[in-house]
Design a protein around this nucleic acid. Structure first.
Lengths: 179, 179
DNA sequence: GGATTCATGTAAGAGGTTACATGATTAT
DNA sequence: ATAATCATGTAACCTCTTACATGAATCC
């Protein structure tokens, strides 16, 4: 199975509630996710076209009077399956956490999805595993510079673990009690 | 003046002590910086060629018996000026800190450069300024999701400030006392 | 009358990556 | 014998960005 980027999954997620045309996707995502996640308009059109070619989206042209006609995209079953799998899976790499985890949290709130707590817990477990590997390496690292690098990695993971417990968990819990 | 990437400055830095050919640069950087910084071999050759075309490097072919001949690159005055300016300047963006600041620390140690403490202090000042901007935004942010995003940014800066004071500063101080 | 919104795209380029091509020498 | 090291590159591809092109409608 082809590995997809976070960007593509965000586009899929934007269409889960309702079909949208390119310009509308942009208007939806920019104010909501603009602080964490960005795509240029031109790239957006390139990506939805490709996602359609690959069977995750389908589209229909809708003509309007007074306005240029637009191509409305909607999720296929394969597309919504792929999105839902992604949104419930923890990020594998620490470097992806910021963009990817925040995007997932956004969709949990926006789409009122279940399983937010489970996602946070799974992400915590994934990070703890990565941290184990770093601790092992750090123990047998003689070079002080490489020790510094491993120290930063460990510190970054520590920061995220704290954030997941203190900020992300209350955030997803609040979502459920709001309903 | 053209803005250069961290990758290019690292290549320049690899040549400050002594001229090297492509393969030698690779052998020098990979074990030393491999844990923070990586370029593919092919990209390395593309970059040194471009840096020469742009006047930061110059090269001469050196033939050997038994071995394929090699192109040895050395810094021009413009090249070493550009490198030295870069290595003494703090990173402007938090996202660049990991790769860029660590690369700079590496060169401070490897080349026994002066001014390490000043760099750490300048980086601390830069981060504090960025943090001010985030605090201001966060105060007037009603959306809880965007608040979460700003919270992460503030937390990341906090982490780096602690690291700069507790790890980076002792590291550069140790360098000087070793001499 | 001029800027912004609506709506979709192409082309060029930046900054990489992996795969491939070449070919001798040296270590196992 | 075969694998790794020495040494340099090209070609194709990936993800994404900026600049550019088009053209009507609506806001100020």
């Amino acid at each position: 199975m082809k590995t997809r980027t976070c960007t593509e999954f965000v586009l899929l997620g934007a269409l889960l509630q309702s079909p949208k045309h390119g310009y509308e996707i942009m208007q939806f995502l920019e104010p909501a996710l603009g602080s964490t996640w960005q795509v240029s308009t031109s790239q957006l059109y390139v990506l939805v076209k490709r996602l359609e070619r690959e069977g995750l989206l389908e589209s229909a042209v809708e003509s309007q009077d007074n306005r240029p006609s637009r191509r409305v995209f909607s999720l296929t079953p394969a597309g919504s399956k792929a999105f839902l799998k992604w949104v419930h899976s923890p990020a594998e790499h620490v470097r992806d956490l910021r963009a990817e985890f925040l995007a997932k949290l956004f969709f949990f709130r926006h789409l009122a999805l279940k399983g937010g707590t489970e996602l946070v817990d799974a992400q915590i477990r994934t990070l703890k595993e990565i941290r184990q590997g770093i601790f092992k390496k750090k123990d047998k690292e003689p070079d002080p510079f490489k020790g510094l690098v491993l120290g930063i990695k460990a510190m970054t993971i520590h920061m995220w673990l704290q954030w997941l417990r203190q900020e992300a968990k209350p955030f997803v819990r609040r979502m459920h009690t709001d309903e």
